[in-house]
Simulated assay, not measured.
Amino acid sequence: MQTFLLLAASNIFMTIAWYWHLKGGMNKPLFSVILISWGIAFVEYCLAVPANRIGFAQGWSAGQLKVVQEAIALVVFGVFMVTVLGEPLHWRHFAAFACIMAAVGFLFVGR
């Protein structure tokens, strides 16, 4: 559970680092946006690295860690896309999520 929570928190910071400037920050100089994003991404790394170390120590494979991270990233981005960017969800977003969740399932079968 600790791994999952840390990965979720890290994905929130990474989504913000990558996409915050699309809403209201497009007039900022690119170099400034990059520096601000690096600062936000630093927090993401401070959460993601321990999450992966803890998960690996608990028996998760690198593939399992990555696929779970991608599933979390898709959920976090979906929420960000709707709430911050004001973009609607379409059936293809749900289909992509289903595919990622299937990948998670395949990597955890038999463990």
Results as ranks from 00 to 15, higher is better:
Leu47Glu: 08
Leu47Val: 07
Leu47Ile: 03
Leu47His: 10
Ala48His: 11
Ala48Cys: 15
Ala48Lys: 07
Val49Ala: 01
Val49His: 04
Pro50Thr: 05
Pro50Tyr: 01
Pro50Phe: 02
Ala51Tyr: 04
Asn52Met: 14
Arg53Cys: 08
Arg53Tyr: 02
Arg53Leu: 11
Arg53Lys: 15
Ile54His: 01
Gly55Gln: 07
Phe56Met: 11
Ala57Phe: 01
Ala57Leu: 08
Ala57Met: 06
Gln58Glu: 10
Gln58Arg: 11
Gln58Ile: 00
Gln58His: 00
Gly59Tyr: 03
Trp60Met: 13
Ser61Met: 05
Ser61Asn: 00
Ser61His: 01
Ala62Glu: 08
Ala62Thr: 15
Gly63Leu: 07
Gly63Gln: 09
Gln64Val: 01
Gln64His: 03
Leu65Gln: 06
Leu65Trp: 00
Val67Glu: 10
Val67Cys: 03
Val68Asp: 07
Gln69Trp: 08
Glu70Gln: 14
Glu70Ile: 15
Ala71Val: 02
Ala71Asn: 00
Ala71Cys: 13
Ala71Asp: 02
Ile72Val: 14
Ile72His: 02
Ala73Val: 09
Ala73Trp: 06
Leu74Arg: 04
Val75Met: 09
Val76Arg: 03
Val76Phe: 06
Gly78Gln: 02
Gly78Ile: 09
Gly78Arg: 04
Val79Ala: 13
Val79Glu: 11
Phe80Trp: 08
Met81Cys: 11
Met81Pro: 10
Thr83Arg: 12
Thr83Tyr: 07
Thr83Ser: 14
Gly86Asn: 11
Gly86Ala: 13
Glu87Lys: 07
Glu87Gly: 02
Leu89Ser: 09
His90Phe: 09
His90Ser: 13
Arg92Val: 14
Arg92Thr: 15
Arg92Phe: 15
His93Phe: 13
His93Pro: 11
His93Ile: 06
Ala95Phe: 14
Ala95Met: 12
Ala96Ser: 15
Ala96Thr: 08
Ala96Gln: 12
Phe97Trp: 10
Phe97Glu: 10
Phe97Cys: 09
Ala98Cys: 07
Ala98Met: 11
Ala98His: 05
Cys99Asn: 06
Cys99Glu: 09
Met101Cys: 11
Met101Asp: 02
Ala103Phe: 04
Ala103Val: 02
Ala103Trp: 06
